[in-house]
Design a protein around this nucleic acid. Structure first.
Length: 264
DNA sequence: ATGCCTAACACCGTTAGA
């Protein structure tokens, strides 16, 4: 079973490119981030024509996540727990979607679009860290189920210096702060395996290149799209591919798809 | 040099991304 994650930076701005990738790569399950549309504007029918079941957690203009699967999506959750007692009017961002899928070989998949958090020292950075706390709490609950679990998406975390081409340029960035990295380590230390580190682990496995300053041409990339596996899923890990050629397309997303293969 | 691109929304600029 192939499970993919891809921050598409607007699904409608590059729909043909996204659909072409699905036809070629044929993921069984895929999590999309930054769809940048409300549920009604998501191109559900186009994915259904390719044989996918569709679940969407959209938002106007920004954020928004979706899950696509060749098998039905059950037990769908939209949003993380923890916004119930927020002040009146405070609205949660559309950044998390979860479902059980896979048919006869069920797997629980969470699709994550973790807040960017820049600039540091502002409420945006506090929101990022609070969101990471909520994610860790939810992950701890999910791990108790002892299922095949994949928590994948755009984590907006550079875990280690080797995950950036020029780590010194990220020193003041929310993606590479000590608190950010410590929170990501705490998440993994619940018992989750970083699939890339398990199957490869070499420097240079970047998943994002900025649009600016020729970052792609100079390979000034960072590894921020991650697939974390429960012990049950990690036992079935068979491979991982970063589809970096997608960054070479006309009008590409600034992120590329990452696909994990599980022997399920 | 706190920008360099890109997208959404609405307006001919602002906000956000990372």
């Amino acid at each position: 079973m192939r499970i993919a994650t891809w921050n598409v930076n607007s699904v409608n701005a590059r729909l043909e490119l996204v659909l072409a990738w699905f036809e070629a790569a044929q993921p069984d399950v895929a999590c999309l981030q930054e769809i940048k549309c409300v549920d009604e504007k998501f191109p559900t029918e186009a994915f259904e024509r390719l044989g996918y079941n569709v679940a969407v957690h959209g938002q106007k203009s920004y954020n928004g996540v979706a899950m696509l699967s060749k098998t039905p999506l059950d037990d769908v959750r939209r949003g993380l727990p923890g916004s119930d007692n927020w002040p009146e009017g405070a609205e949660d961002h559309a950044r998390y979607i979860e479902a059980v899928t896979g048919g006869a070989t069920p797997v629980r998949v969470g699709g994550i679009y973790l807040p960017n958090g820049n600039p540091i020292g502002t409420e945006k950075f506090a929101y990022k860290l609070a969101w990471m706390d909520r994610l860790r709490g939810h992950a701890a609950e999910l791990l108790k189920l002892e299922e095949h679990l994949v928590l994948c998406g755009d984590y907006n975390v550079i875990p280690e210096p080797q995950d950036a081409d020029k780590p010194e340029t990220w020193a003041g960035d929310a993606l590479f702060q000590p608190e950010t990295r410590a929170s990501f380590r705490a998440l993994k230390n619940l018992g989750l395996t970083d699939a890339y580190m398990e199957v490869d682990g070499s420097p240079g496995g970047y998943t994002f290149w900025d649009y600016q300053a020729g970052a792609w041409q100079r390979n000034h990339g960072i590894r921020i799209d991650h697939l974390l596996l429960s012990p049950q899923a990690a036992d079935k890990l068979a491979g991982l591919v970063i589809h970096r050629n997608e960054r070479d397309n006309e009008k590409p997303s600034d992120h590329v798809p990452v696909v994990v293969e599980l022997s399920l």
